[in-house]
């Protein structure tokens, strides 16, 4: 028992929770834009995977993590563009398209890994390391828990604030939310529904891609097949749990980060718990939390419905 107590009270657990929550949060943030504009993007997982792959590729080829970020974002946005074209311009089934993109991303990344790298394995690459935040990094407990993270954590926090402001406090955000509630009414007001939905979808791709980039360059420093591990789908649940709010997505994602961090800690502790079962914990937690929250959620009215003008 005391072991368990040690785990729960250790500052490094919370540091890990933040780190593990980050990819999920970024993907959920992107999905929030898409869904607020009325688009369900089930292809989140595929976008994360492409982002992670691009990040490793860019970082490996140039030796610079920043180039990795650029390539990762580019690939994820490309996937988003396919989803955008099919669901916005052609009015195709959004969910089916997302599923196809997930399968395609799995295939393409696995294919390219074997085509590009000798031996069919991605190499270790340069990533982003953590740094001490000035002044507060050595504060007791919170220093380790919060202020010894990589740059991504602070980037994500800024992104969350900007997203909240843009979506909830500006005319642009109001119009985008309008597109998710009633695209026909918006169109009849002269609002360019297609353009706004495209913007939302590309933002979604970039955010999900960034999540993948961080997964690769902030955590594992390499790429492996299917490494997104269902985080894209957890992010779909986080969006619902956070009630389509960019700010509420932070605690919601942190919850899953904490569960995963806890599972990993227990797994590497002396506690006699089968490690595999601990690894199933985040997925069990997703279903449970989702089940508790969903009854009270109120999705955008036009979510997932295709809208093509005659």
């Amino acid at each position: 028992m005391s072991d368990l107590f040690d785990i729960v009270t250790s500052a490094t657990l919370y540091a890990a929770a933040i780190r593990l929550a980050l990819p999920i949060f970024l993907a959920a943030l992107g999905e929030t834009f898409a869904e607020r504009a009325g688009l369900v993007n089930v292809g989140l997982e595929g976008m994360m995977l492409m982002g992670a792959f691009g990040a490793v590729l860019g970082s490996d080829v140039t030796g610079s993590a920043l180039a990795g970020v650029a390539i990762g974002l580019l690939l994820a946005v490309l996937v988003a563009a396919v989803q955008g074209f099919v669901s916005i311009n052609l009015g195709g089934d959004q969910i089916v398209c997302g599923i196809a993109l997930n399968i395609g991303a799995l295939g393409i990344t696995a294919f390219l890994v074997r085509a590009i790298w000798e031996g069919g394995n991605a190499p270790q690459v340069a990533g982003f390391s953590a740094f001490d935040f000035p002044l507060v990094a050595n504060a007791p407990f919170v220093g380790v828990a919060v202020f010894q993270q990589g740059i991504f954590v602070y980037v994500a926090l800024v992104l969350a604030l900007i997203s909240w402001w843009a979506l909830m406090k500006t005319g642009w955000g109001l119009r985008m939310r309008g597109c998710g509630e009633d695209p026909l009414a918006c169109e009849s007001l002269g609002i360019p529904v297609k353009r706004l939905r495209w913007q939302a979808m590309l933002i979604c791709g970039a955010c999900a891609g960034l999540g993948g980039v961080f997964l690769a360059l902030g955590q594992l420093l390499t790429f492996s097949d299917g490494m997104s591990g269902g985080r894209g789908f957890i992010a779909l649940a986080v969006v619902i749990i956070a009630r389509w709010s960019p700010m509420l997505a932070i605690p919601s994602a942190l919850l899953f980060g904490a569960v995963e961090a806890f599972a990993l800690r227990v797994q590497s502790s002396d506690l006699d718990v089968p490690p595999e079962l601990m690894l199933a914990l985040p997925y069990v937690a997703t279903i449970i939390v989702y089940a508790i929250v969903v009854g009270r959620s109120n999705p955008p009215a036009a979510l997932g419905r295709s809208y093509v003008r005659q």
Binding site: V86, G92, L101, G107, I108, F111, R114, S306
Partner: peptide, 20 residues
């Protein structure tokens, strides 16, 4: 992985074909 790529492409083409 070519099989997966082909499947994904085929699904995409099928939705595009059905799309309004």
């Amino acid at each position: 992985s070519i099989a997966q790529i082909l499947l994904a492409a085929a699904v995409l083409f099928v939705i595009v074909g059905n799309a309004e």
